[in-house]
Amino acid sequence: MAEDWAVDVKKYASDADEKAIAGIVRHCGIALQKRDSSLVSFSDKDEVARVRDNFLKKKLGLNSPDSELDQAISAVAAKMKGDRTKNRVTVYYLLAEHFGKLSTFI
């Protein structure tokens, strides 16, 4: 699935770092090859838990309480509310930006 992930990220972060976007794309890897796994469903509790546990805790190394991490995920969901498709790369970029962890991907 060929997609310019930077275009979507820049809808929400106009000065987005291209290297960080490329790093997130590398991190997501095979998940971006299928449409369904390239999107995040904020209404699916299991999906939100996966984002929190696998991305925020494991990849970004955050140890904040789940309630605080869930609040950040909810803030990104609210920011992207008008967009029918919530691209995983964009969600991860916005979360990494929120927590000051974009350098993890550069």
Rank of each mutant, 00 (worst) to 15 (best):
D8M: 02
D8Q: 07
D8L: 04
V9P: 03
V9E: 02
K10Y: 04
K11C: 01
K11T: 05
A13W: 01
A13V: 06
D15E: 09
D15W: 03
E18K: 11
E18Q: 13
E18G: 05
A20Q: 06
A20T: 05
A20N: 06
I21Y: 07
G23D: 08
G23S: 06
V25D: 08
V25L: 11
R26A: 14
H27A: 13
C28S: 15
G29L: 04
G29S: 02
G29N: 03
I30T: 15
I30Q: 13
R35E: 13
R35A: 10
R35C: 00
S38R: 10
L39C: 06
V40E: 01
V40C: 09
S41K: 14
F42Q: 12
F42H: 12
S43L: 10
S43C: 03
D44N: 14
D44K: 09
D44Q: 07
D44E: 10
D46K: 15
D46A: 15
E47C: 14
V48I: 12
V48M: 08
V48Q: 08
V48Y: 09
A49R: 15
R50Y: 12
R50I: 00
R50G: 04
V51S: 05
R52Y: 03
R52N: 07
R52V: 12
D53T: 11
D53F: 00
F55P: 01
K57S: 04
K58C: 02
K59I: 05
L60S: 05
L60D: 05
G61K: 01
L62A: 02
N63R: 14
P65S: 10
P65V: 09
S67M: 06
L69M: 11
L69D: 01
D70Y: 01
I73M: 08
I73S: 07
S74T: 12
S74W: 00
A78G: 15
K79G: 01
K81Y: 03
G82T: 09
